[in-house]
Design a protein around this nucleic acid. Structure first.
Lengths: 232, 232, 232, 232
DNA sequence: GATGAATGAGCCTTCATTCAT
DNA sequence: TATGAATGAAGGCTCATTCAT
């Protein structure tokens, strides 16, 4: 039951804008792998944005802050992103990849019982939360800030949760079919509940100031909570 | 197992200015109950603020908006509240009363098994969420927006969650003593988990656009989830 | 060369508004003299205004401040004065009486040499400055603040300086006639210079934080400076 | 006894941004001197601020006014200066250079009798007042407005007067040593008095609406007043 | 006479956005 | 590509002024 977590997969692979492909190709041709300091400008900015949005909230972050953190000036941000919202969208896409896409890929490519998959799910999500606590915060903040704002952003957030729900649904249905999980409850309801638990954990952990101890306790509780829920 | 919920208790009880008390007495003598339009200005503003903060977030709400919604101008807001933050604090205090204080009072004054109390807890919280969805949103938004902001606000949010945790702790300890609940898990862990579930439900429900159907399903799931958690 | 300074004369005697005469008459008929706490509301307000304008400047003083200092609320101010500027005007009139009018009366009613009169002038002005340092500050501040503002206020300030110049002129002319003072310089120039010295002293003393020691040294220097100027 | 006054020295020498230095060099190479329209934006703003602060007082000047006068918008002001107070500070620093620094440099680098130096002092100060009447007004207004305001501003004003006092002290001590000036009075007292006269002249002249005729008369009176004071 | 409540204009300040270089 | 400079639209807050009671 020990899962190897290929760390490279956990790092963002964003769709590279056409403009940047040449630069990337050139860098690759020199045999350089992108270390931290060799990220493209846009990636540096996205990283800085994720960090700043996470710690101050989207509305409270200025592009000056983000640019400075990335080591550039505001102009650079506007060269690479249409506006502040576009930057947020890119950040969210990154988060989508790092969190749910990575988790989903890992779960799906692994053969095993539904129970194994459910545990794997929680494990990956927990690991993601631990490795990228900023991501989580961004997601929480944006998901809280935007219900009455930009449709594009809302859609992006929805997409992340849709994927999360889909993955859970798959696992539960498989469990029901294999007889591991109880068929007493509607799958939709279980998913809803599991998502809620998931979110709640994240939120609580975030409010605790991302205390690792709280994280550990919540992780454990989540797994057992999940299992109780699906098996009963 | 049906609890009567005195609705009057769910409404905020803020210190009423002397002037209004007289008015209230007079009105009562005529057999008249105060409708919304007879709230004090400050209360109208708080109400409007709660609404606006809920739908746009604290940072995105302007005092012009709030004032207009309350039927006044910005000046009136500043006449009654020191600044924007004070208004938020007042809103949070109201929420504290309406949500956890009311729930706690109801649970504590009722004799019954721990299981009854736990159900009562969920029921009251659900009812509060249904009756004051704005409150919930404000709490979520503020609790997400403030980790790097005003200490006073953070303290107020913490206070609400502290009370919530305390109440849950009481119930669980009582359940353990009476043998209703399993003693296998540390009370603190259970509380943590229940709080997470609670928050997650709220969050999910909020993200759903406060869909009543989702609310019902989550409510049911929460009770059974809670019971599974404490009894196992 | 010791001058008795009837202190009652140094206190403001403002033209009492018709509205207030009845109240005053009634109070007088009861045999009450107006002690500090028995000043009319308007006088209390003026006093408070003088104090506040002096310590914060006219622009930086709010009517709320003034009213509170006087023990009333803003409404009372507006009941007694048309607007903020009218209040300032009243304050300036008070100052005119307390400073130059009092000095002029004292100098003129006293027979003696021009030298005596000049010394008396300085002495009275110094005493006024010591007893009502606030007045001085108001005068400085207003005279500095208003060159491009309200004509009425400017006129009032000008009036004070006109009276001051007139008095000095009288004294100097008398000194020239009696042979005490040199006829070498034009009276107008001397007056100008003396006024400048006077103002400069006031300003310096004010900037020193109305330090009494500085006041004493400046007073001495002023007298000898004045005498040197007129006698040479 | 005729002093040549290198006018270039009377103009502010603020640290010139690198970019402008290049521009200056280029312009100089073309034999072109910079006219007003070629000042840096920051300098234009400072100039406009000095003008506006002088005519309306610091508190009564809005940054909109200042920016407009400089030919920009408020945003530009905030791009170059942290806030309104920083702008004031910058203005005061300019004034310090133009007034006392220039005077002090001229007096100290010139060999001559103490009497010459004292005359030179008055001459330079008078010339400064004539060439930069705005400066004077700003100094008066700020020094009147600030006793209860920003410490930084107060410190800056104090600094200017400290330098003025220091210079006078030097001259007087030299005069006492050389036997030109009377040793009867304490140097500190003389300085105090001279400063008062200086201030008073400035104030009076300012109140006169910077009438050149008054300026001339005051200048003459000041020199003779100064000499009488120190020689007696 | 005096108060509390409310208004509205105005100011300082921030910040996303644009643009010439 | 990236920067510095400038803009303009808000938003928070203050305060003189009005008015009903």
């Amino acid at each position: 039951m020990s899962y190897s977590l290929p760390p490279s997969k956990l790092d963002a692979i964003r769709p590279v804008p056409a403009r940047l492909q040449r630069a990337n190709a050139r860098a690759a041709s020199v045999g350089k792998t992108f270390t931290e300091s060799e990220l493209s400008t846009a990636d540096k900015i996205i990283k800085a944005a994720a960090e700043f949005f996470a710690s101050h909230g989207y509305v409270n972050s200025t592009l000056d802050d983000v640019a400075a953190l990335a080591g550039f000036t505001k102009g650079a941000v506007y060269y690479h992103f249409k506006d502040k919202e576009s930057l947020l969208l890119e950040v969210l896409k990154c988060i989508e990849v790092r969190s749910i896409d990575t988790t989903a890929a890992a779960v799906r490519e692994r053969s095993g019982s539904a129970t194994d998959h459910l545990e794997l799910f929680v494990r990956y999500q927990t690991r993601w939360a631990a490795q990228h606590p900023r991501d989580l915060a961004v997601l929480m903040l944006v998901s809280a800030e935007t219900p009455h704002t930009s449709e594009a952003v809302r859609a992006q957030v929805r997409e992340i949760y849709r994927k999360l729900g889909l993955l859970l649904e798959e696992i539960i249905e498989a469990g029901k079919r294999s007889g591991e999980f109880s068929k007493r409850q509607i799958t939709g309801d279980i998913v809803l509940y599991l998502q809620a638990v998931h979110d709640g954990n994240m939120m609580l952990w975030y409010r605790s100031g991302t205390d690792p101890e709280i994280g550990r306790r919540l992780g454990k509780a989540t797994i057992s909570g999940f299992l109780k829920t699906v098996k009963d």
